[in-house]
């Protein structure tokens, strides 16, 4: 597989206007910085895992990339073409190359449509001239691929279990043979045993079809399993970006270190003697983020410099980037 650069995100910022109590029409709205200057590169065939606490901007980042949420500044280069500069109609043409899988499997399927109609929708949208027999063949094909029986084509979403619904969601994302699939916490609503099935299905499909994935999750062990590269987000900032093994074996940012130490080890002896790094305090308000390093309010290593200067994302080793003044 050739590893050409597929997507380049440069300094992407997403801000939301927040109105608080007592605001008048003319009051200047406060800004919530959901994603604050994120840059990364995605090569084809890779799986980028995005992890972070809830509310750290994972989903917003994903939605901003495919301009479902308007970005404040920044560029998203898709094979060299800036997606954010496109208008709605031009963007629509590119949507067939980037598909998405959602968190709640049942809620992401229209309850009034049959499975066949749901899976065929992308096809009908982008290739309206496809014949009925052709559509049916391709729907059946893709259903087989994700492990659904073809004769379920006339069923409705509420007749399926969560895991099956997620397979339907995956089938819908696959039918156009996209280049990139964004998975927004695709397994967090599922049982642990079903999670493994869906993850393995995604990995098999990736191998088979040469997909590139952006995989959002808050479960580190799952991300480790599927990702080649991991991005750790904290309050809309990348704190660490490195290869999967590097993050696990040598986490450099204090936040990542704490996250990794929180992953349970399935061995009670090791688990008991493991030194757990606890992060104290609450997540600061994203409307009024701390000056300098966003993590300094909860960081053990915090010094004066942390409140004065925002640490840049710097290369600590080859393909291992950290945003900390004290990375060692």
């Amino acid at each position: 597989m050739n590893h050409e650069t597929m997507m380049q995100v440069e300094n992407l910022k997403v801000h939301f206007d927040v109105s608080s109590e007592g605001d008048m029409l003319w009051t200047k709205r406060k800004k919530l910085q959901a994603v604050n200057g994120v840059s990364f590169e995605l090569k084809s065939g890779e799986t980028l895992g995005i992890v972070g606490e809830s509310g750290c901007g994972k989903s917003t980042l994903a939605r901003a990339i495919i301009s479902m949420v308007p970005a404040e500044t920044g560029r998203v280069l898709w094979f060299g073409k800036d997606l954010l500069a496109l208008n709605k109609t031009e963007m629509r043409k590119h949507r067939k190359e980037i598909q998405m899988i959602f968190q709640d499997p049942l809620a992401s399927l229209n309850p009034r449509m049959t499975i066949g109609e749901i899976i065929a929708e992308p096809l009908k949208t982008h290739y309206p001239k496809t014949s009925k027999a052709d559509i049916k063949a391709r729907v059946g094909d893709v259903m087989n691929k994700v492990g659904l029986l073809e004769n379920l084509i006339n069923r409705y979403p509420h007749e399926f279990s969560g895991g099956q619904c997620q397979r339907i969601g995956i089938a819908r994302a696959l039918i156009l043979k996209p280049k990139l699939i964004i998975c927004d916490e695709p397994v967090s609503a599922l049982d642990v045993s079903i999670q493994a099935q869906v993850i393995n299905l995604l990995m098999d499909l990736q191998k088979e079809m040469g997909l590139t994935l952006i995989f959002i999750a808050h479960d580190l062990s799952i991300v480790k399993h599927i990702s080649t590269k991991i991005m750790v987000l904290y309050m809309g900032n990348i704190v660490e970006l490195a290869k999967s093994e590097d993050i696990y074996n040598h986490p450099r940012h204090p936040y990542t270190q704490a996250l990794i130490s929180a992953v349970p080890i399935p061995d009670p002896k090791i688990e008991k003697n493991k030194d757990l790094i606890l992060i104290e305090g609450d997540l600061p308000s994203p409307i009024n983020p701390p000056s300098g390093c966003v993590f300094r309010t909860r960081c053990k290593k915090a010094q004066d410099i942390c409140s004065q200067e925002k640490p840049e994302l710097k290369k600590a080793a080859s393909s291992h980037e950290v945003a900390c003044h004290f990375n060692d």
């Binding site: 479902m68 598909q99 998405m100 968190q103 992401s108 949208t125």
Partner: peptide, 26 residues
């Protein structure tokens, strides 16, 4: 705000079709 509407938008379905196919039947 339901996810299936978002899914349709991500697929690239036009506003008119989203209204007719996803909103009105529901």
């Amino acid at each position: 705000n339901k996810e299936f509407i978002e899914a349709a938008q991500a697929i690239g379905v036009s506003d008119y079709k989203i209204i007719m196919r996803h909103i009105v039947p529901n």
